[in-house]
Nucleic acid binder design. Structure first.
Length: 647
DNA sequence: GTAGGGTTAG
């Protein structure tokens, strides 16, 4: 009834609407509905695709009286996954059970992917067991997604477990599975030794005839960069080159090459055509480094290469304006974007709304919220938390209250959101106001637990209201909730930083013992230092005694404290240890030196390329495009003047 | 394949 082969989504929609209007939808069967839905899920960026899918799904049941099958649900779930809507996915999954539609491998794969992407819980193993119980076949994709879930939960042991299970089930990992597995290990590796395990996996995969790809190298290089192992990253980069694997912007970022320079290298050295992502990434980097001229060149080059600005492009540019508090230009881009038929998504809205909140313009912010809701984009947790956090940064504690009040009118704020507000309230107000917000939280049926108290106590400490911090700390204990290590550590530091609170600090120290929490190295040194600095030598001896009793190496702590004391007694003018002083100065020198040489180098390379590009772009771009590009790029002058340009 | 997989874009 509806031809989908090789036709674009808009035409298919027209055909569908014709059937709808002529009351002929009942001529479509489930397969045909699925085929049509499938077209839209692949083209979710076309305007209104999401709404169209929802109405097709509804028409299918209400008008055509066609019962959705597991494929229909899979398609809808896939749509929700792309929309990052976990609620929708769960609803579909629940509906399937209610209607006795059996989920298949794909359903579960989507569910696992969703929990790794959207849910906080660690239910990967539970879903896997469910598949086993219900005898639903697993495949390599299932395990790839299970590894994703492990990565999101930072659960490396579970990843190893899944790897063994996979081999036991007779499934041969392919490059995707291997990369996902390697990713879990690499992302969580704290040092080279832990990263070695990822290298071992690579050895295994090579033995299986699967060679590392760009993605594999990017994962490893990024991990090395995160560890600060620049030399090792470069080494790996060289190995990658030797194997003939070409880098992309992400690889280059891993070895410290960003922005225009990165694109230059991709084009000139590696002869690769940058992708849309490469352009966006590099432009974002340039904007964040305040290299506005570069950003403009990147934008032109991107358009010449046939890439139209997409949501991310717009978002990157808008955020650059928002960082400069220029909401007018940001809103201008918002209009331009809609004129370009690029649909704003929740990131776009979140950035704009947040920008207005940052400027104290609550009215404008919430006008945009209502626009957002009108276009069927929900006010999600991410947006709410972002607004509250931004409002919290204001000196005026009323801002967060106003924002929160507006949010309450639209939705039930999450527990997390309430706690963020409490954190800020406790910084500026005393007990009764905090109590008021606790009541609000209670009204929304949120449990008040350790997390809640931690938010309040941390807030009060940050606001230097230690009396209130102690009040809530005691309240918490009265409720039968014990502090955890983080909270106790934080309390001790907050009290120790205030010279008047030494006795309170020492009584908090006893809580480690009282609540059976083991103090760590930092805690111990912190308290011992405090005793030493304030000449509380009796307490010092007592604490060292306690430590010995508890099996700590008290002598080594004693030695470290004595050493510190001697240093400060040496009577040098600076409190800093001479080595530290030297390194600090030397470090500054090194920083300026390397910055200067690299600036010169970048400048030289840039000039050449910018000239090239400028030539091409003036030929290729029409005037309209040129003025658009100029209008988009943040106007602030580049901080580093570019030599060789006119003037 | 009507639906599902790896690193980087806001």
């Amino acid at each position: 009834m509806i031809e989908t082969e090789g036709r674009d989504a808009e035409d298919i929609w027209k055909d569908y609407k014709t059937l709808f209007n002529t009351n002929n939808l009942n001529k479509l069967d489930v397969t045909e509905f699925n085929r049509v839905l499938g077209v839209f899920v692949k083209n979710l960026t076309i305007p209104g695709a999401y709404g169209k899918m929802l109405s097709i799904f509804q028409d299918m049941r209400d008008m055509a009286k066609v019962k959705p099958d597991e494929s229909t649900y899979n398609i809808m779930m896939s749509m929700y996954l792309k929309k990052k809507d976990f609620k929708g996915i769960n609803l579909c999954f629940g509906d399937m059970q209610k209607q006795n539609i059996l989920p298949n491998t794909i359903t579960y794969n989507i569910m696992i992917k969703a929990i790794s992407k959207l849910d906080k819980s660690d239910t990967a193993m539970a879903l896997y067991s469910e598949m086993v119980e219900r005898k639903i076949r697993r495949n390599e994709k299932t395990f790839t997604m299970l590894f994703c879930a492990c990565s999101a939960r930072r659960n490396v042991p579970q990843a190893h477990q899944f790897y063994r299970i996979m081999l036991n089930e007779g499934l041969q990992p392919d490059i995707y599975t291997y990369n996902a597995y390697i990713n879990v290990i690499a992302r969580n590796a704290k040092d080279l030794k832990e990263l070695q395990k990822a290298m071992d996996v690579i050895k295994q995969m090579r033995e299986q005839g699967v060679n590392p790809t760009l993605v594999t190298y990017n994962i490893l290089i990024k991990a090395l960069q995160a560890m600060g192992k620049r030399t090792d990253a470069l080494h790996l980069f060289n190995q990658m080159e030797l194997e003939g694997v070409k880098p992309n912007s992400s690889t280059l970022e891993g070895i410290g090459i960003t922005g225009l320079q990165a694109l230059l290298k991709l084009r000139n050295t590696y002869k690769v055509t940058p992708s849309h992502t490469d352009f966006n990434t590099c432009m974002d980097q340039a904007l964040k480094e305040s290299k506005y001229t570069d950003a403009m060149e990147i934008l032109s080059y991107m358009q010449e290469s046939g890439f139209k600005p997409n949501v991310s492009t717009y978002s990157i540019l808008m955020n650059a304006h928002i960082r400069q508090n220029d909401m007018i230009r940001a809103m201008g881009l918002f209009t331009a974007m809609k004129n370009d038929n690029v649909e704003p998504d929740n990131y776009i809205y979140a950035s704009l709304i947040d920008g207005f909140v940052a400027q104290n313009d609550v009215e404008q912010a919430f006008t945009l919220v209502s626009h957002m809701l009108e276009s069927k984009i929900e006010l999600n947790k991410m947006t709410i938390n972002r607004l509250i956090d931004t409002a919290s940064k204001s000196k005026d504690p009323k801002l967060v209250q106003r924002v929160f009040e507006r949010i309450e009118r639209l939705t039930v704020p999450s527990k997390d959101a309430c706690e963020r507000v409490l954190w800020r309230i406790a910084q500026s107000y005393d007990i009764p106001v905090v109590e008021k917000y606790l009541k609000i939280m209670n009204k929304h049926n949120h449990i008040i637990n350790r997390e809640t108290f931690t938010a309040i106590i941390t807030g009060a400490s940050k606001g230097c209201n230690l009396t209130q911090a102690r009040y809530w700390y005691n309240q918490m204990i009265e409720q039968g909730i014990s502090p955890d290590h983080m909270l106790l550590s934080m309390m001790i530091r907050a009290h120790a930083d205030d010279a008047k609170e030494i006795d309170k600090t020492l009584s908090l120290w006893n809580d480690f013992h009282y609540f059976g929490i083991a103090p760590d190295d930092d805690d111990i040194m912190y308290v011992l230092n405090l005793c030493a600095e304030t000449s509380h030598w009796r307490d010092e001896i007592k604490i060292l005694g306690q430590l010995k009793e508890l099996g700590y190496d008290a002598d080594s702590y004693k030695a470290r404290i004595t050493e510190k004391k001697q240093q400060s007694n040496d009577g040098t003018e600076s409190k800093m240890d001479p080595d530290e002083e030297y390194y600090e100065e030397y470090g500054e020198y090194l920083k300026t030196r390397s910055a200067n040489t690299s600036i010169i180098r970048v400048k030289e390379r840039m000039q050449k390329w910018v000239r090239d590009i400028a030539k091409i772009s003036s030929q290729k771009m029409d005037d309209n495009a040129k003025s658009r590009v100029e209008q988009w790029t943040p106007y602030r002058k580049p901080q580093l003047p570019i030599m060789g340009t006119k003037g």
